[in-house]
Computed example of a mutant assay.
Amino acid sequence: MSYTESYTCDVCGDKKGEGGDWWLAWVDCFQGENLEEGQPLIKLTRWQKSHAHSAGVKHLCGARCAGTLMDRWMSEQYADPDAHCQTV
């Protein structure tokens, strides 16, 4: 029995095929001088299958969806300018 992985763009819902210009994005923390000063930041990198499984990673089918994700994230940050990184 074979195992087939499938990925879907987190913005538009397109299914990943063999080719394409896919990207990965995730939210991280830019540390301030104190823990409570940390600022959320978004990271973007080209597709790497080994990282596609990581928790919190968004799968993006191209530049347009990467831009849409960035726009949405920036709007959320603008709406809450005092937001800091989540501490666990």
Rank of each mutant, 00 (worst) to 15 (best):
C65F: 05
V57L: 04
G32N: 05
A55S: 08
A25T: 08
C29P: 03
Y78Q: 14
V88I: 09
V11D: 06
E33M: 10
Q31L: 13
V11T: 13
L69R: 01
Y3N: 11
E5G: 12
D28Q: 02
L69S: 05
L44V: 03
G38E: 05
L35V: 08
A55D: 13
E5C: 05
G67K: 11
K58T: 02
P40M: 00
E33D: 07
T68N: 01
G32K: 09
C29F: 00
D21W: 08
E37C: 06
T45R: 15
M74T: 10
D71S: 14
A66E: 05
A25N: 03
C9G: 02
V57C: 12
Q48T: 13
Y3E: 12
D14P: 00
S54Y: 06
S54D: 14
E36P: 09
T4S: 14
D14H: 10
G20D: 07
G56P: 03
P40H: 01
D71H: 10
M74E: 14
T4A: 09
V11E: 15
C61P: 04
A25F: 02
F30C: 10
G62Y: 04
K15P: 13
E76C: 12
A63C: 10
A55F: 04
K43P: 05
C29Q: 02
K43R: 12
Y7Q: 08
H59A: 13
G17Q: 03
T4E: 07
G38I: 11
C61Q: 04
H84K: 12
Q48D: 15
P40Y: 05
S6W: 07
R72Y: 09
G32H: 08
L24W: 00
P81A: 09
M70Y: 06
G19R: 06
C12N: 03
A66L: 01
R46H: 11
C65V: 04
P81Q: 02
T45Y: 00
W26P: 01
D21G: 04
A79K: 04
W47G: 01
L24T: 03
S2Q: 08
G67C: 10
V57Q: 02
A83C: 00
Y78E: 11
M1N: 00
G67I: 02
H51Q: 08
Q86S: 11
I42D: 00
G20N: 09
H53P: 10
D82R: 09
D80E: 11
C61F: 01
Q39P: 07
T8Q: 15
D82E: 14
D14W: 03
K15I: 12
Y78D: 11
Y7A: 13
S50N: 12
E36T: 14
C65L: 06
R46E: 05
V88A: 11
D71A: 15
G20I: 07
K58S: 12
I42T: 06
M70I: 10
H51T: 06
F30L: 15
L60V: 13
H84T: 15
C61E: 01
D28Y: 03
W22S: 02
A79M: 01
D10I: 01
A66D: 00
G38Y: 07
G19C: 11
L41S: 09
K49E: 13
Y7R: 13
S54W: 04
Y78V: 15
K49T: 14
A52F: 02
R72A: 14
C9Q: 07
A55G: 02
G17P: 12
T87V: 04
L35T: 09
Q86M: 10
Q39I: 08
G20E: 02
C9M: 10
G32C: 04
Y3P: 06
Q48W: 07
K43Y: 11
D14Y: 05
R64W: 06
